[in-house]
Design a protein around this nucleic acid. Sequence first.
DNA 1: ATCGGTACCTGCACGC
DNA 2: TGCGTGCAGGTACCGA
Length: 264
Amino acid sequence: MPELPEVETVTRSIAPLIGRKIVSAELRATRVLRGSDPERVAAKIEGRRIQSIKRYGKFIVMSLDKGVYLTVHLGMTGRLLLGGPPGKHTHAILNLDKGVLLYDDSRMFGCIEVSDEFPKRVAKLGPEPLEVSFEDFATSLKRHKMRIKALLLNQTFLRGMGNIYADEALFRSGIHPMAMASRLRGGRPRRLYDAMRDVLTEAIAAGGSSISDYVDAEGRKGFFQINHRVYQRTGEPCVTCDKPIRRLLVAQRSSHFCPQCQKR
DNA sequence: ATCGGTACCTGCACGC
DNA sequence: TGCGTGCAGGTACCGA
């Protein structure tokens, strides 16, 4: 579930781990390690100190001493937790010189990767939505012949947008999810840019959206879900015009929109 | 080179 | 109670 605001919230909640040393790592041989050998991964990070923790889109990159990087992606159901008992879906336990960090993930779409250089998958991502200039955003929009909803989900276009915030930003800017990105004209690119930044900023301030079970590393829920205007509100009245919110598939993902307020 | 579709997993809510 | 279906915050990979 985690998109940029949720991953930002998790990253902030594990900031106290900066400066801590990884004493031992218990890793299970699952797809979460992307086929890497658990023993070798553990050996690589044991004894390393966490120098920094940064978010890049939906990725969390911990830089360890001796040039080692520990990269975490939460996928749909991944959780990083500071302590607490391990559960059925706990795939990694990092014992620190003070405290413990658990990685939990029922669907296992997330991953933990260790590398000797800055992770290539992260280096390939597009710019941060909250950092990109409007000019770069507008230029990039024109280059893509895709449905705008699909483009917003494309992490090489922008990093960190996901299904919730794409739908919410499109609603706020009055753009239909099926609209072609390269054909957005007039004030629409600007409205989309502003809406995207507003919704992300508001969501970060609210600690993200807790749809089913998302919590930060301290177990705290986000509360931005109460401010969703279209996401998972199919059939409910539009907050602006009262027409029922509709749902359709774009790029195989549910897209929620108001047929009255959002035009192609 | 870009794209759309499919695959990967588990859990839950729903109707029968 | 159980079973089948559809749905869920994500990305990688394949072929057109």
